[in-house]
Amino acid sequence: KKIKIDLKKGPEGLGFTVVTRDSSIHGPGPIFVKNILPKGAAIKDGRLQSGDRILEVNGRDVTGRTQEELVAMLRSTKQGETASLVIAR
């Protein structure tokens, strides 16, 4: 099931960490939400869960991207702006 979640970045950030699983010589594996932090946009919104697979960030497919690339995409969202995620659960 795909779910679109918009998180408005506040002073505590987006409020979640990510982890890559099953990376191989063929490229990075899928990226999942690792933890929801006690402060930040994710816990206020309440929909994002540990174990959700991140498919898109701000309309860009993240398949084949590294964890570092995904984190850079999320960090490029400025405070007060919205990060738009599509996740699979």
Rank of each mutant, 00 (worst) to 15 (best):
A42E: 01
L55Y: 11
K1G: 01
L48Y: 00
V86N: 08
D52S: 01
K8S: 14
F32M: 11
K34M: 08
R47V: 10
V19F: 15
R65T: 05
G27N: 09
G80P: 03
R60M: 08
L85D: 03
G29D: 12
I5L: 07
T66W: 03
V19K: 12
G27V: 10
D52M: 02
V57N: 01
V62T: 08
R75C: 10
T77N: 15
I31L: 14
N58H: 06
T82A: 14
A88E: 14
D6C: 14
L55D: 13
P30D: 15
D61F: 10
K39F: 10
G46V: 01
D6P: 08
A42L: 02
L37R: 02
V57D: 01
G64I: 09
I31G: 07
D61G: 10
Q49S: 14
R47A: 09
P28R: 08
V18K: 01
S50N: 13
E81I: 03
I36L: 09
R21W: 14
T63C: 07
R89D: 11
H26T: 13
P28D: 08
T20P: 14
R53H: 09
L74I: 09
I87V: 09
S24V: 07
K34Y: 03
D45K: 01
L48N: 00
G59A: 04
L48C: 02
G27E: 13
S50I: 11
L85V: 13
G40Y: 02
P30M: 05
M73I: 04
K2S: 04
E69S: 11
E81P: 03
I5K: 00
I54D: 01
T17C: 08
D52N: 01
L70P: 02
A72D: 13
A72C: 14
K2Y: 08
P30E: 14
D61L: 07
R53P: 02
P28Q: 04
K4Y: 14
S23Q: 07
G13C: 05
R65W: 05
E68M: 05
K39E: 14
N58I: 01
L14F: 13
Q49K: 13
M73P: 02
I43R: 04
G80M: 09
K4D: 08
G15T: 00
E69W: 06
S24L: 08
G51P: 00
A72H: 13
K4E: 07
E56T: 13
G51V: 01
I25G: 09
H26L: 13
K78R: 04
H26I: 15
E56H: 09
G27K: 08
A41V: 10
G51K: 06
I31W: 13
V18A: 07
R60W: 07
A42K: 01
G46E: 06
I43G: 06
K44I: 15
E81M: 14
E56P: 00
D6M: 13
L37F: 07
G80T: 12
T63H: 05
T20W: 09
R65A: 06
A88C: 11
S84A: 11
L7T: 00
K4Q: 04
T66E: 06
T66C: 12
S76I: 10
I43Q: 08
V19Y: 15
K34G: 09
S76M: 09
A88S: 14
T63Y: 07
T20H: 07
S50K: 12
S84D: 13
L48R: 00
I36A: 01
R75N: 02
T77W: 12
F32Q: 13
D45I: 01
R60V: 04
G10K: 07
V33L: 03
A83F: 13
T66I: 06
I3P: 00
L70I: 04
T17V: 05
D61S: 10
G64E: 07
P38I: 09
K9L: 15
V18C: 15
K78V: 08
R47C: 12
I25D: 14
S76T: 12
T20L: 08
D61E: 13
A83T: 15
T77Q: 07
H26N: 10
P38L: 10
V71R: 11
R89K: 06
E69P: 02
E68A: 06
V86Q: 09
A72L: 06
R75L: 04
I31K: 08
K4L: 14
G40A: 03
Q79R: 08
E81V: 08
T63M: 08
L70V: 05
I54W: 00
G40V: 01
E68N: 06
S84R: 08
F32P: 02
E81F: 06
G13R: 02
T77M: 13
E56L: 09
I25C: 07
E81H: 12
T63F: 05
L85A: 01
V62D: 02
